[in-house]
Simulated assay, not measured.
Amino acid sequence: MKYTILIADDEPEIMELLQLYLENDYSILQAKDGIEALELVQKETIDLAILDIMMPGLDGRSLLKKIRETRTFPVLFLSAKSQYHDKILGLGLGADDYMSKPFNPLEVVARVQALLRRVYNFDAADTSSSQSSICKVGELKLDRMRCSLSYGEEPISLTSTEYKIIDLLMQEPGRVFTRKKIYESVWDDYYVHEDSAIMMHISNLREKIERDPKQPVYIKTIRGLGYKIEAPREE
């Protein structure tokens, strides 16, 4: 079975280039603007999307917000904007990865492969003897067989990257995971001082599981090292 990739970009040359490099291994859907892309999301089964940020009709950021209302497939942003704050904003909206134009198409292929491997290898996760399929930390319960998180009885919707981070942290509550360890475990790539992506996904997780994200009681920052998760202390 081939994975289906949606490419949304208002530059025909970009879409043709990406299709050329991806079509041998994946089924490709193309959209020339955000509105057409949203229509495809609503009627097709999509496994990954590559979205341009600056598109007519519905820009990439607005499109991603609408996608995240109902879908959790990984999203790779492409943008002519390379400023740091644009990357932070894109990741903060729920994108899984971000690349600036101009780009090397071979790097796009590598990023796509890494995202798909990370997201759709859940079935290959080790849920046997050494790891329980259920992880609990306070009111949080992670079901690794179903790849789902709940707070008490309330299900929490996660993106694929958020799931991988919370899964890693909840396997060993109290352990401090360095940024390097988190990045290499979740992104399946060598760590090259990529703090912004980790920071934004942690921030997104706190928005979903903490009563007050500015004063987190579950996911703690260990200054200069990384992050850990622990059950809140009873008062």
Score class of each variant (00 low, 15 high):
residue 8 A to M: 08
residue 9 D to R: 03
residue 9 D to N: 09
residue 10 D to W: 10
residue 10 D to Q: 10
residue 10 D to R: 10
residue 12 P to W: 11
residue 12 P to I: 07
residue 13 E to N: 11
residue 13 E to K: 13
residue 15 M to V: 14
residue 15 M to N: 12
residue 17 L to I: 13
residue 17 L to Q: 05
residue 19 Q to R: 15
residue 23 E to L: 12
residue 24 N to Q: 15
residue 24 N to D: 15
residue 26 Y to M: 14
residue 27 S to P: 06
residue 27 S to H: 11
residue 29 L to P: 04
residue 30 Q to M: 15
residue 31 A to R: 06
residue 31 A to Q: 02
residue 32 K to D: 11
residue 33 D to E: 04
residue 33 D to P: 08
residue 36 E to K: 10
residue 36 E to N: 03
residue 37 A to N: 03
residue 37 A to S: 05
residue 37 A to G: 03
residue 38 L to C: 04
residue 39 E to S: 09
residue 39 E to W: 00
residue 39 E to C: 05
residue 40 L to V: 06
residue 41 V to S: 11
residue 41 V to Q: 08
residue 43 K to R: 12
residue 44 E to R: 13
residue 46 I to T: 13
residue 46 I to N: 14
residue 46 I to P: 13
residue 48 L to F: 11
residue 49 A to Q: 11
residue 50 I to Q: 12
residue 50 I to T: 13
residue 51 L to N: 02
residue 51 L to E: 03
residue 52 D to P: 09
residue 52 D to M: 04
residue 53 I to D: 01
residue 53 I to C: 00
residue 55 M to Q: 03
residue 56 P to R: 05
residue 56 P to N: 03
residue 56 P to F: 05
residue 59 D to P: 01
residue 60 G to L: 01
residue 60 G to S: 02
residue 60 G to R: 01
residue 60 G to I: 01
residue 61 R to L: 13
residue 62 S to K: 09
residue 63 L to V: 10
residue 64 L to N: 04
residue 64 L to D: 05
residue 64 L to G: 02
residue 65 K to Y: 01
residue 66 K to Y: 04
residue 66 K to F: 03
residue 66 K to G: 04
residue 67 I to G: 10
residue 68 R to N: 01
residue 68 R to L: 02
residue 69 E to F: 07
residue 69 E to V: 11
residue 70 T to P: 00
residue 70 T to G: 00
residue 72 T to R: 03
residue 73 F to A: 03
residue 73 F to L: 02
residue 74 P to H: 07
residue 74 P to V: 15
residue 75 V to P: 04
residue 76 L to C: 10
residue 76 L to M: 13
residue 77 F to Q: 01
residue 78 L to F: 06
residue 78 L to I: 09
residue 79 S to L: 00
residue 79 S to H: 00
residue 81 K to M: 08
residue 82 S to M: 06
residue 83 Q to I: 04
residue 84 Y to C: 04
residue 84 Y to R: 15
residue 85 H to R: 13
residue 87 K to M: 15
residue 89 L to G: 07
residue 89 L to P: 06
residue 90 G to A: 01
residue 90 G to Y: 01
residue 91 L to K: 01
residue 92 G to I: 05
residue 92 G to V: 07
residue 92 G to Y: 05
residue 93 L to N: 08
residue 93 L to I: 15
residue 93 L to H: 11
residue 94 G to S: 06
residue 94 G to T: 04
residue 94 G to K: 05
residue 94 G to V: 10
residue 95 A to T: 05
residue 97 D to G: 13
residue 97 D to L: 08
residue 98 Y to T: 15
residue 98 Y to H: 05
residue 99 M to S: 12
residue 99 M to D: 08
residue 100 S to C: 13
residue 100 S to L: 08
residue 101 K to H: 03
residue 101 K to I: 02
residue 103 F to D: 08
residue 106 L to Q: 15
residue 106 L to V: 06
residue 106 L to K: 15
residue 108 V to G: 14
residue 108 V to H: 13
residue 109 V to P: 11
residue 112 V to M: 14
residue 113 Q to S: 12
residue 113 Q to P: 03
residue 114 A to M: 08
residue 115 L to V: 09
residue 117 R to F: 07
residue 117 R to K: 14
residue 117 R to E: 10
residue 118 R to C: 09
residue 119 V to R: 07
residue 119 V to M: 09
residue 119 V to S: 15
residue 121 N to F: 14
residue 121 N to A: 02
residue 121 N to M: 02
residue 123 D to Q: 04
residue 124 A to Y: 12
residue 125 A to W: 14
residue 126 D to H: 06
residue 126 D to Y: 11
